[in-house]
Design a protein around this nucleic acid. Sequence first.
DNA 1: GTGAAAGCGCTAACAA
DNA 2: TTGTTAGCGCTTTCAC
Lengths: 335, 335
Amino acid sequence: MTNKIKDVSAKAGVSPTTVSRVLNNSKLVNEKTKRKVLKVIEEMGYIPNASAKNLRSKKTMTIGVIVTDILVSYNADIIKGIENMANSLNYKIIICDAQDQKEKEIDYLNLLYNRTIDGMILVTSTLSDQEIIKIAEQGYNIGVIGRNIDHDLVSCVYNDNLKAVQEVIDHLVQNGHKDIAFISGLKDAVDSHERLEGYMKALKRNQLPFDPELVDNGDFSEYGGYEAIKRIIQRGKKFTAVFAANDEMALGVYNAFKELNIKIPEQIAVVGVDNIRVCSYVSPKLSTVAQPKYSMGALMTEKLIDQMNENKYTSSRTFKVSSTLLVRQSSDHEL
Amino acid sequence: MTNKIKDVSAKAGVSPTTVSRVLNNSKLVNEKTKRKVLKVIEEMGYIPNASAKNLRSKKTMTIGVIVTDILVSYNADIIKGIENMANSLNYKIIICDAQDQKEKEIDYLNLLYNRTIDGMILVTSTLSDQEIIKIAEQGYNIGVIGRNIDHDLVSCVYNDNLKAVQEVIDHLVQNGHKDIAFISGLKDAVDSHERLEGYMKALKRNQLPFDPELVDNGDFSEYGGYEAIKRIIQRGKKFTAVFAANDEMALGVYNAFKELNIKIPEQIAVVGVDNIRVCSYVSPKLSTVAQPKYSMGALMTEKLIDQMNENKYTSSRTFKVSSTLLVRQSSDHEL
DNA sequence: GTGAAAGCGCTAACAA
DNA sequence: TTGTTAGCGCTTTCAC
């Protein structure tokens, strides 16, 4: 069988504890002893058993990440940020693809309960604030990306949706647009509420009326955006710009206008959110709001690990990050 | 503290062993006893400790996945296939983003050695065949996606590159092309060799001469493709079609021809490989070779888990999958 | 069908 | 600075 600490300690003429101390970089060990032990470890090709260590130390140095769908590039960018930061702090990550099923999401939380992982990061979860708070109050380390939950035990990194939306509307108004349609996301998504709120506030600030007939919901998919804009068009109201709550739906809007032979941006301006890769490849290039996804993942991870190790209440567990409006061809035209 | 098996067994009036049997669906337990134990578990909200279980049973039900870069959609698709299959077989996956660094890749293999994971899947690894075989011979479960390693202990799922390339060349020849440039990938990538070989074979089969001046290497990036095609153009040879070893490089080819005001597909045909999402959004839509990425990931996972549990030599650990040529606008024009 | 005893390989607590 | 002892919580014998 493989070597154990006992084998190393016997060969090095020290106790298992000393070997353990060397392995864990404890200062409580003489430099000379350390070198001797290290040499034996090298010679024997000894590798510590992680399961035994986990059991005894009650830590696994692993963080779980639940995402709705790995393939969505928004999530992939965040995962990259999480993985990189985790790795640099000696943590591993377990990826959980919930496939848009709340049931699966709840299932994955077992990794937290059965101590497979030390903490969990939820990327745009479908769990309610209350459900998440309850988990945190049971003593589990949990963080959420994309939403602000007001609780000392839940770390959050989220976006300043209001500011982002206002920036978009201001930009469109500056280009002479007065009738701006808005395609919101799923009705019960937190982001959707905030963005709709931002839309209304921004209209007011620009002294423009709010017309509910110019608003509809999509499901964040390309086809959902296509259908939503079709519904808005059918209502017969005039509008010269469309703001979609994400890029996928904005692409659906492109499809609808292509069918109708309406030119973007000459006849209609379109702006999305997320800055997915396709934005720069479609014609015309799609204006969008870019979120610092990688940084959001990295920041969340740093804070969660901090929380796990400090294990104390800090008042600032919540981080609001800003996004950037990228004006491309699809909205770069003055009326 | 949290409940342990002992607490459950005491309350249920049975031995810890029996509780363990219930937990693991052993048949060696009376239906009545089982129900009783289950009821107590439910009441106490008992959750087994995974670390203890891992230590004792010498399994973690976890598979590691090393990818060069999560953000590359080719990898993301494969990961999705792996995650889904693993999950359905009750396994978890740990994602390792090697960020194109061989050093990091080697580092991650420690997860295998220290028993954090039961097996490892390499997605287009930079390790040599010999290095991988050595790991397998040490008794670790390892599988590779994207390459065929001829060894009983290494599971492989890879693509029939030769056939794919021949299909592309045949398609171009059918459309009247006789001078077909080829942009290969990194010189030392296995895929590159195979695709170049396929290119030469296909030319021969169509009785076309092979001109090395129509071949160049890129680094699989968009800009790499741009530079490669520029070099080929500068040599002054005539050609009417370009086959790039992946879509990113094909996009670089688009950029070069746009600069030169040369029309695709009227003046030049372009075909890529991978079927990344952007293909369908650029103008003209890019013809490409689609690999069954999701299935490759799923298949690999199924086979690796099989291998881990059967723990016996099987002669067929190697699976060749076929790809599909998707003819879109960029090559849909007869000369 | 059930249980008692042993121990997976490590580290924490305490003692020296 | 080092070592001894005692378990972490589970499953695996082996016995009944």
